[in-house]
Write a protein that binds this DNA or RNA. Structure first.
Length: 576
RNA sequence: UGCCCCAUGGUGUAAUGGUAGCACAUCAGAUUUUGGUUCUGCUUGACUGGGUUCGAGUCCCGGUGGGGCAACCA
């Protein structure tokens, strides 16, 4: 049988966590664990939707298991019924699958372990390692001390074991009000690590639990649930973010207690990495929830949200998320990642796969005065120059077209090489045209551009080989399909919204979503988009397009047979 | 004024005591029927002071700077 280590093609390229795991394998620690393979877990709290930061954790947890031939469990960390809900449970599973990971038959809940946790707590009381406290939250906070001053012991700290046991059992019968009693670990009120100052293990919560209903009235705290759940599942490596670093000694303390009671030497190991911070983005679930609840965005899956469902709706592919995560890496340095890196990742992926179409977002009419009225030619266009096998499609060309308003300047600035009076420009996949004049309305706004075309310059003909400085995209006015286009930009106007002293609502970018109700799209693309009606949000068929020379766009879920909606995922790189 | 952690170009990340490399960004050029893509090139880096060593980005000590810890949240 191959050892787990041999499953790694190359030991190089491992990040520091994977190196630690490899070392544990080598040291025989993994073999000593219950399942004898590298066993990780992804432990979301079902109190919100997953965001790009969670994707980083998911790739770590599931990725490490995959890399070492081990397993990764999905475990919902549902120890606080007042915040959690099943709505989130379903969404979380969909997002993990979207990223290409699967927990097989290992979907667990911390609430699966409520009984085991309870029994463990009772055992700890019996061993004199825990006691029921009757101080209020304020009192506990007051006697906890501060990071620089030691705390004081609770007057209930040394009460008889039987008394604590009796009170603890009654805490769970609904006999006491919320906040009146807690179970505390008896450790050390003067410890320099605040987490050792008799941490609360259980508190009373009178709120039905999404899975256990009203069976329990006392619920375990994170510190007394997480590591223990890891232990029950035989987790070898419990990987989490840096803010849990100071919890690790307590994690180890509780693990040792449990191992002693069980009479084993196996204990799970917690390792921490830096969480993802990204410019112009906020990861706080609380604030993200506020954006949703206050209607500041279209919902959890608003294309501006950093949530996985939001990014998906925006047009980000699962592959692009993976490549982004790969490039940012895992370290213990708490830095800030530029959102440009994410955009680069999606451009790189979409460049390879998105179908090229013509869409005019801000149209102005263009008339080719020497082109026959009523004539329509079907021009052939490559679906994807990066992928010739993707084939071609046809689009109609006629006397009256729309081009992009910004592609014309009456008086061209120095580096402008698009359309201007008396100059030639190429209409992509069609003819070379020359501007002869413009028509303006009473306000001086251009309403029509007049051109002539060179009949010998049709794409593919020898006359088309002439060098012209610019190439424009266009659509035929009569055949073009009006579509709604939603242009997206950063949700926030400042690089680091969470560091700003202003309320995050004041930092929202008013231009983060600009809806253009009437952009024009070539008919073939509209036809493709209609195939998306009724498609699942996860499916990728016919979803991603490049509007040539503008950016990448994807069909939005709001699309119906007669109302097509596109989201702008990201602009093309622009070296103008 | 306690405890824990961190420090490599503008940003992020490699190296495992032996030539500081990669990606993104930036800038310049070539190619291009997308000002896209692709290709080429340039510029820019070890927080600081000691120590160990033939040799230190890497190990040790002291500073400095940053992050975390005082929810009955996770």
């Amino acid at each position: 049988m191959a050892t787990a280590l041999e499953n790694i093609e190359e030991k190089k390229g491992l990040n520091f966590i994977e190196e630690a795991i490899a070392a544990d394998i080598e040291a025989g620690k993994v073999k000593n664990s219950p399942t004898q393979v590298v066993h990780t877990r992804f432990p979301p709290e079902p109190n919100g939707y997953l965001h790009i930061g969670h994707a980083k954790a998911i790739c770590m947890d599931f990725g490490a298991a995959r890399k070492f031939g081990g397993k990764c469990n999905l475990r919902f960390d549902d120890t606080n019924p007042s915040k959690e809900d099943t709505e989130y449970v379903d969404a979380i599973q969909e997002d993990i699958h979207w990223l290409g990971f699967d927990w097989e038959d290992r979907k667990y809940y911390a609430s699966d372990y409520f009984q085991q946790l309870w029994d463990l707590a009772e055992e700890m009381i019996k061993r004199g390692l825990a006691y029921v406290d009757e101080l209020s939250a304020e009192e506990i906070a007051a006697q906890k001390g501060t990071p620089t001053t030691p705390g004081q012991e609770s007057p209930y700290r040394n009460r008889p074991v039987e008394e604590s046991l009796d009170l603890f059992r009654r805490m769970n019968k609904g006999e006491f009000a919320e906040g009146t009693k807690t179970l505390r670990a008896k450790i050390d009120m003067a410890n320099p690590n605040m987490h050792f100052r008799d941490p609360i293990m259980y508190r009373i919560i009178d709120h039905p639990h999404h899975r256990t209903g009203t069976k329990w009235h006392a619920y375990p705290m994170y510190d007394f649930a997480h590591g223990q759940s890891d232990f029950f599942e035989g987790i070898t490596h419990s990987i989490c973010t840096l803010e849990f670093e100071v919890h690790r000694p307590l994690y180890n303390y509780f693990a040792k207690v449990l191992a002693d009671i069980k009479g084993t030497t196996y204990v799970p190991r917690q390792i921490e990495f830096n969480r993802l911070n990204m410019t112009y983005t906020m990861m706080s679930k609380r604030k993200l929830l506020a954006c949703v609840k206050e209607g500041l965005v279209r919902g959890w899956d608003d294309p501006r949200m950093p949530t996985l469902c939001g990014l998906r709706r925006r047009g980000y592919t699962s592959d692009s998320i993976h490549s982004f995560i790969d490039t940012i890496g895992y370290t213990k340095y708490d830095g800030m990642i530029s959102i440009k890196l994410l955009e680069h990742a999606v451009r790189e992926d979409l460049n390879k796969h998105a179908l090229r179409v013509m869409g005019v977002v801000d149209p102005v009419k263009l008339t080719i005065t020497n082109y026959p009225e009523g004539k329509v030619e079907m021009m052939e266009m490559e679906n994807n120059p990066e992928e010739p096998e993707a084939g071609t499609h046809k689009m109609p060309f006629s006397r009256e077209l729309y081009i992009e308003r910004e592609d014309f300047q009456e008086v061209a600035e120095k580096k402008f090489f698009r359309l201007t009076i008396d100059k030639e420009v190429r209409l992509k996949s069609a003819y070379i045209i020359k501007c002869t004049g413009v028509v303006k309305d009473e306000n001086g706004t251009i309403t029509e551009i007049l051109c002539t075309y060179d009949p010998d310059s049709k794409s593919g003909m020898p006359g088309a080989d002439r060098k012209v400085k610019g190439t424009l995209h266009w659509v035929s006015r009569k055949e073009a399909v009006p579509v709604e286009v939603r242009l997206y930009d950063n949700l926030f106007t400042v690089e680091d919204p969470s560091a700003d002293e202003r309320d995050f609502r004041e930092l929202l970018n008013p231009q983060s979503e600009v809806v253009l109700p009437c952009a024009y799209l070539e008919p073939w693309a509209a036809e493709q988009a209609r195939k998306r009606v009724g498609a699942s949000h996860i499916s990728t068929e016919n979803r991603y397009y490049q509007f040539q020379r503008i950016g990448y766009f994807c069909v939005d879920y709001d699309t119906t047979e007669d109302h097509i909606v596109f989201n702008r995922t990201v602009l093309l790189r622009d070296s103008k």
